[in-house]
């Protein structure tokens, strides 16, 4: 059985500080990877490297056996990244945000109203996002998960600002994605209510001396 995503010997240095070195992992279909570690240890950096926003100092990543920079367009089509900045336009309403984002994600037949209902924003669709709460804005961002056709989801702190119901909703969506042979990589300070061998964990420790180990 081949791995969906395989990272080998990843090393990253940011602002002259070593974050992690020789980090390797691989995920099979239906697996979820929880990246743990203290603030500032480099969890977000790792996620951004996997997404292709950053380049590692050394190491390689393969998705379905294809190297990360081989065919960027195809690579980007297979992954969905939601960072801690939600990419929601404050001036636009939930409906407009969803609509534009879906088109940019290459999905044309999205039923925005149904999506709004799913994430519990029905009735708020015309209000500019800046007047919504942080949790509601996060829901707009996360609504992408319900139409996404990408197999690899990379989510940086997806539970931030969500209420209990929202968290449960997200868990259900994750479950569904994993059953469909998807793969999820996420960071979260909240413990995941997940059980079984589908959950993998890696921990990035803070390199407090800031020096490069060789």
């Amino acid at each position: 059985m081949s791995a969906v995503i395989e990272a080998k010997q990843l090393t990253s240095v940011r602002a002259e500080r070593l974050l992690f070195s020789e980090l390797s992992f691989q995920l099979q279909t239906g697996e979820i990877l929880h990246v743990e570690g203290p603030n500032g240890a480099g969890k977000s950096t790792l996620l951004r490297i996997i997404a292709g926003l950053l380049e590692p100092l050394a190491g390689s990543i393969h998705l379905f056996g294809q190297p990360q920079w081989g065919d960027p367009e195809c690579w980007r089509r297979q992954l969905l990244f939601i960072g801690h900045k939600p990419a929601v336009k404050a001036e636009l309403s939930a409906l407009e945000n969803l609509h534009f984002q879906a088109t940019l994600d290459g999905v044309t037949n999205v039923d925005a109203w149904a999506l709004l209902e799913t994430v519990g924003l029905l009735g708020l669709e015309d209000i500019p996002a800046q007047q919504l709460s942080a949790g509601q804005q996060r829901r707009i961002a996360l609504a992408r998960l319900w139409y996404s056709q990408a197999s690899l989801w990379i989510l940086d702190e997806p539970f931030t600002a969500l209420d209990t119901y929202g968290i449960q909703l997200l868990h259900e969506r994750f479950q569904h994605h994993l059953q469909q042979d998807g793969v999820i990589i996420l960071t979260s300070h909240q413990p995941l209510t997940w059980s079984g061998d589908r959950l993998k964990k890696i921990r990035i420790e803070f390199q407090d001396d800031g020096e490069l180990h060789e």
């Binding site: 292709g52 089509r77 992954l79 990244f81 960072g83 900045k85 404050a90 940019l104």
Partner: peptide, 18 residues
């Protein structure tokens, strides 16, 4: 500026579109 601050820029860079 706003695209950078709210994360839209990341999404544009990651979009499959050129």
């Amino acid at each position: 500026r706003d695209d950078f601050l709210d994360g839209t820029l990341e999404q544009l860079v990651l979009s499959p579109a050129p």
